[in-house]
Simulated scan of single mutants.
Amino acid sequence: MTTAATRRSDRRISPVFLGIAAVTAVTGWAVWTDFAAQPGIAVFLFVTGAWIVSLCLHEYAHARTALHSGDISIGAKGYLTLNPLKYTHALLSIVLPVIFVIMGGIGLPGGAVFIERGRIRGRWRHSLISAAGPLTNVLFAVVCTAPFWLDALNGVPDTFRYALGFLALLQVTAAILNFLPVPGLDGYGVIEPWLSHSFRRQVEPFAPFGLLAVFGILWIPGVNEVFFDAIHAILRSLGVTEWDTYWGQEFYRFWQGTPEIPVVTQ
Rank of each mutant, 00 (worst) to 15 (best):
A63D: 12
Q38D: 07
N224Q: 12
F254M: 14
V156E: 12
L108D: 06
P183L: 12
L212Q: 08
A141N: 05
V223Q: 08
S198D: 15
A42G: 02
G118N: 14
A66D: 00
G239Y: 03
I217Q: 02
A25N: 03
L82E: 02
R200Q: 14
H89T: 13
G210W: 04
V47E: 08
D158G: 05
E204L: 06
T241C: 01
V98I: 12
P134I: 13
Y252D: 14
V101A: 14
W29R: 14
L150F: 04
T245A: 03
L128W: 03
A141F: 04
V95I: 15
C56D: 15
I261S: 09
R201E: 15
Y87E: 00
T88M: 12
L92W: 10
I217V: 15
R253P: 01
A4T: 15
E250F: 00
W149Q: 11
I74N: 08
T173E: 10
V95R: 03
A50V: 05
F199Q: 06
L235V: 08
D158T: 13
V214Q: 13
I115Q: 10
A112H: 02
L96P: 00
F100A: 15
A25W: 00
A21V: 11
C56T: 08
A61E: 09
R200G: 14
P97R: 01
F209Q: 06
S54L: 10
H58M: 06
A152W: 08
G75N: 07
S130I: 12
A132W: 02
A21P: 01
N224T: 11
Q202I: 14
V142K: 10
W124H: 07
L82G: 02
G19D: 14
Y188R: 09
S69D: 02
E192H: 09
S127F: 04
F209A: 15
H126Y: 01
A146I: 06
F44E: 13
S73N: 09
F100D: 03
A132L: 03
G105I: 07
N224D: 09
Y252S: 09
G70L: 11
D10W: 00
Y252H: 04
F199P: 02
G222K: 11
F206D: 06
A112M: 07
G184C: 05
I20W: 00
H232Y: 12
G70V: 14
T136C: 06
K77L: 10
G49P: 03
A90Q: 03
H58L: 11
T81K: 00
P109G: 06
F148N: 06
Q202E: 15
Y246I: 04
G111I: 12
I99W: 05
H58I: 14
V172L: 13
H232T: 04
Y246N: 04
V47A: 10
R161M: 03
Y188H: 14
V16L: 09
A90W: 01
S196F: 02
G40I: 11
V172T: 12
Q256C: 02
L170E: 09
V226W: 13
S93F: 01
R117N: 11
E225L: 13
A175Y: 01
E116Y: 02
L18P: 08
M103I: 13
